[in-house]
């Protein structure tokens, strides 16, 4: 199983940014990677340097030509995600619909916890982006409606937009790291070049290859690879 969900109970925390750049980093590490944008905002493509009016291939539409950017095959999954048949399939006990020879990154909107719940049994990992702000921290109670956060086993917290010059941000990182232990997969620094690259409809890696956020994502993906079982621990440790 190599489905990785990106879903946060709080919007505006950089969920799509992390999904996009983790997908690109996974592809750069040699994984056959697919990214599916299940949101109605359809902004995943912007992080790949595509234009807002540039349509992605709709998941489930066999007539579309494949779009592969930075080694990642991109799909618009918004319609599929709302499909009753798709949701019914995901509910079936024992169903294993996703191929195991690909890494599938799913970008899920904050409000769509129902889709997160349906995909979760099929996922190797659920990445929960956060920002060091009280509202995002308070939303941690909503990661899973049934299971307390500390008891979740396939969940990785990521502190995004971290600015270590801010007291609450520093304290939040220390708190999350110590309170949640290994569930905290890493942090990504606040980096204005992310927005600047998007505003120029270009990729962050091309415009700002030394972006600190990119470096942090690369480190983070090393951790996620292990958590999702994509690499042997020994192989990663020797890398």
């Amino acid at each position: 199983m190599s489905l990785i969900l990106f879903h946060s109970p709080k919007g505006g925390v950089g969920n799509t940014f992390l999904a996009a750049h983790c997908a690109m980093e996974l592809a750069a590490r040699g994984h056959d990677t697919v990214a599916i944008d299940f949101t109605y905002q359809a902004t995943l493509k912007l992080f790949f340097g595509l234009l807002p009016d540039q349509p992605l291939v709709k998941a489930g539409d066999p007539s579309g030509d494949e779009i592969v950017v930075a080694g990642v095959e991109l799909f618009d999954g918004e319609e599929l995600g709302r499909s009753a048949a798709f949701r019914q399939l995901l509910r079936q006990p024992g169903a294993q619909p996703f191929p195991t020879d690909k890494v599938i990154v799913a970008d899920i909107a904050a409000h769509d916890r129902a889709l997160r719940q349906l995909l979760m049994p099929h996922a190797a990992l659920h990445v929960v982006p956060l920002v060091p702000r009280p509202a995002a921290l308070a939303a941690l109670v909503h990661v899973d409606p049934d299971i307390p956060l500390m008891e979740l086993e396939r969940t990785a917290l990521v502190l995004n937009m971290l600015d270590d010059t801010r007291t609450l941000a520093r304290h939040s990182r220390v708190f999350l790291t110590q309170a949640f232990g290994d569930m905290m997969a890493g942090s990504v620094r606040r980096d204005e070049s992310v927005a600047e690259a998007m505003a120029g409809f270009d990729s962050l890696a091309k415009l700002f290859p030394h972006s600190p956020a990119l470096g942090d994502v690369a480190h983070l993906v090393g951790v996620l690879e292990q958590r999702a079982g994509l690499v042997a621990h020994e192989a990663q440790a020797s890398a």
């Binding site: 056959d32 066999p62 599929l80 048949a85 798709f86 399939l89 079936q92 619909p97 195991t100």
Partner: peptide, 24 residues
């Protein structure tokens, strides 16, 4: 190995999982 459930007869769903396998 991938084992799409038998209930996935919906053309859109079937096409989607076909897309996921097509590149390989």
């Amino acid at each position: 190995p991938p084992r799409p459930a038998a209930a996935a007869d919906d053309p859109q769903v079937r096409a989607f999982f076909g897309q996921l396998g097509a590149r390989g």
